[in-house]
């Protein structure tokens, strides 16, 4: 192999690894968020919201399946969606730490959802133009779903913020508590930069401007205050999680771990 070919092969491998990591981040974020929403089914404040939250969960699990299947193909080690979902431990998950935060009350779930819906809205919109045609196709499908999710979560944010004194106080507290996790959403690392420069993923700085505008507009309509940006030391997308993810996975993976090799 000539030095030039070897360099090119190395570059390809590095790009492939970055792509794998990037797709896992997207897939794991959808999976963990969908798993959290699944905890709500049957326990929501009204029947309509039960159906709505189940719908969101279903879409997110669907996105996770497409993304993890693709990740398994990129990796080339014959791991399918279930091997990736059920047989990795927390440090090998790369979801945003916000997705794994507990449901809390309905207001807390809505705020978490709204922050991530608005993030997915920008990321999937950008990915539709991806040079990676598989990602572009998945994003096009997911974007349609995310528009609905965002309408649901921002609608509830406004209703709760502009509802009663109690609901206003509860939802403002949720915004204040979860805001620190947003610093991770648009902080690019080497994977994000490599994806953006290859034309595979959108630039996070452009996405952040648009996300931030959505935040301001919705918070204003909800009569809520935007907290100051807070640096946050943990980074789910690098596999550094909060204490919550371990429990999410213990529950989700229980059968696959107890009965190794069984088909379900």
């Amino acid at each position: 192999m000539s030095p030039a070919v070897a360099t090119a092969a190395r570059a390809d491998r590095a790009l492939n690894e970055a792509l794998l990591r990037y797709v896992l981040r997207l897939g794991d974020t959808s999976l963990v968020l969908g798993q959290r929403l699944g905890e709500w089914v049957g326990h929501a404040p009204t029947l309509e919201e039960d159906l709505g939250l189940a719908n969101l969960a279903l879409d997110l699990i669907g996105q996770a399946r497409l993304l993890l299947t693709y990740a398994g193909e990129i990796e080339g080690r014959e791991r399918d969606e279930d091997a990736l979902a059920y047989l990795r431990d927390a440090p090998e998950f790369f979801n945003l730490a916000l997705a794994e935060q507990p449901n809390g009350d309905f207001g807390c779930t809505i705020v978490r959802q709204w922050l991530l819906d608005a993030w997915q809205l920008e990321i999937y919109a950008g990915l539709q133009e991806s040079t990676d045609s598989r990602l572009a196709a998945i994003a096009a499908k997911a974007l349609k779903e995310t528009r609905y999710h965002y309408r649901f979560s921002s609608g509830w944010l406004v209703r709760l913020g502009d509802g009663t004194a109690e609901s206003h106080e509860r939802v403002q507290r949720a915004v204040d508590q979860l805001w620190r996790f947003t610093s991770e959403l648009f902080a690019p690392d080497e994977v994000d930069e490599r994806m953006a420069s290859a034309g595979i993923a959108p630039s996070l700085s452009t996405a952040e401007v648009r996300w931030s505008a959505h935040m301001d507009e919705d918070l204003r309509a909800a009569t809520l205050k935007r907290p100051a940006a807070q640096p946050y030391p943990w980074h789910g997308k690098r596999g550094v999680h909060t204490e919550h993810l371990g429990y999410v996975l213990a529950e989700m993976q229980h059968l696959q771990r107890t009965y190794p090799g069984a088909r379900w």
Binding site: L51, N55, L58, Y86, L255
Partner: peptide, 20 residues
């Protein structure tokens, strides 16, 4: 939350949603 595969999880969510 404990469905043993992602397909089973999706089908179960859809089913419970149907009941609602």
């Amino acid at each position: 939350t404990r469905a043993p595969s992602l397909r089973r999880k999706a089908v179960l969510i859809a089913k419970v949603q149907d009941e609602g």
